[in-house]
Amino acid sequence: MVKLSIAKILQIALKAGRVTRKYPSEQPLLTPEFRGAIRIDPTKCWGCGACVRVCPPNALTLTPKDKVATLEYFVGRCIFCGMCAEVCPANAITVTKEFELSSTSIEDLKSGVVHRLVRCSSCGELIWTEAELRATVKSSPISEEYITLCPKCRKLKFGKAAMLGRGGSSE
């Protein structure tokens, strides 16, 4: 090992300068590629559940309860992969640069978007969220008679209509 003299060490130290980042008082070094916590825009979210399906650690969950379904984001389990932002059909999810997420209680790490559910006009079963219904009507031409039906009732109604069209009876 080469032994350095004090003068030499001082020379190296002066050349390197101060490297320490005074973090809490100084801004942290965030690269453009850095991914932090996600933010869900409640004005854009449909509650379709595409992000829930793709989320590797199930940090996003969509739980129906009574007449509402809550899309819950638990940042404590999130691995910050950004897959949810990639698949979101409404572009409601954005990846922010937020990383100061520490908290003293686990409840503070959770956040949610509450969606109201729509009932099937025929059988009364809860089918989908209000926001998703609105988005579907906007994007694809679908008959108003069918829009509020659940898939089962829709199939039944269409079958009956087709039989009537062929000259048979609806029964």
């Binding site: 973090y23 809490p24 942290p28 409640p42 004005t43 979210c45 509650g47 809550t70 940042v75 990383f99 100061e100 997420l101 520490s102 908290s103 003293t104 409840e107 503070d108 790490l109 959770k110 956040s111 949610g112 978007v113 509450v114 969606h115 109201r116 969220t129 209000e130 926001a131």
Partner: peptide, 27 residues
């Protein structure tokens, strides 16, 4: 590493907690 420093400072009560539970209705 900054998040670890922030966590230690929060543990000692030197900084304010930023995370808070929020539940909002879709528009």
């Amino acid at each position: 590493p900054e998040a670890i420093i922030y966590g230690i400072l929060l543990l000692l009560g030197a900084v304010e907690q930023k995370s808070k539970r929020v539940e909002v209705y879709a528009s």
